[in-house]
Design a protein around this nucleic acid. Structure first.
Length: 224
DNA sequence: AGCCAGATTTTCT
DNA sequence: GAAAATCTGGCTA
């Protein structure tokens, strides 16, 4: 079922950050600067595990710890940029730290952090969060989901945070309403596996996750 | 707990 | 016209 159709009134948009934004009430969450992001996309995917994703919405601050990512790299047939630039994937060719949001399976949005230098076309899919901020607001967007399933999977993550095509191309390292934050707690062991849901280049080990974290998606066999 | 079918629409061939 | 970086509910391989 498409949550867009079920809950059209809950499709909230971003708002600009006010000077007294609630992020000031979260001293542990510092915005990441672009220079902190590894230029290599595989390194970026590993680096982002344990970092924070935050979205300031009219319903409040929503976000959590990134616990699962996948890298889509240069020369990778599974990467949306593999066959060159098109209207759909053009934001993948921005400088690293921007958002690439795409619509998939007729139902869902998925959020990527663009990797590499401008013009290259690589990214990191954010596959799962550990919910930390705004859990009530997430539940309102996904009323049928258990806490564990609120943000476990790329489509669920985007829905729970209110991310859609309006966020495509935004700078996640700027002063906007959607941003990457530093770790709020040390990251555990980072596991590596093949990526999920692919037909092409399915064997490459480009998925990264925090081991033993309850909020990681995928079959048990991939999460050892 | 695990597997399967159906939903739904954009995008490119 | 087919495939797609998925999710949900229902059924039991």
């Amino acid at each position: 079922m498409c949550s867009e159709k079920v809950l059209p009134s809950l499709s909230l948009r971003s708002l600009p950050i006010a000077p007294s934004a609630p992020e000031n009430q979260l001293p542990g969450v510092r915005r990441l600067a672009r220079r902190e992001l590894p230029i290599d996309t595989e390194a970026l995917a590993r680096y982002l595990v344990g970092k924070t994703l935050v979205h300031q919405t009219p319903a409040g601050l929503i976000g959590g710890r990134i616990v699962e990512t996948e890298a889509y790299v240069v020369g990778d047939a599974a990467c949306h940029a593999f066959r060159g630039q098109t209207p759909r994937n053009r934001s993948l060719f921005l400088e690293r730290g921007h958002a690439y949001v795409y619509f998939i399976y007729g139902c869902w949005f998925a959020l990527n952090v663009v990797g590499g230098k401008a013009g290259i076309g690589t990214g990191v899919l954010l596959r799962a969060l550990e919910p930390i901020f705004g859990i009530d607001a997430m539940r309102r967007r996904r009323p049928a989901a258990s806490l564990r399933d609120l943000t476990r999977g790329p489509g669920r993550l985007a829905t729970a945070l209110g991310i859609d095509r309006h966020h495509n191309g935004l700078d996640l390292c700027g002063q906007g309403s959607l941003w990457l934050g530093a770790s709020i707690r040390p990251v555990g062991t980072v596991g590596v596996s093949s990526r999920i849901g692919l037909t092409r280049e399915a064997e490459r080990l480009l998925r990264f996750y925090e081991r033993d974290n309850l909020y990681v998606s995928g079959p048990k066999s991939l999460n050892r």
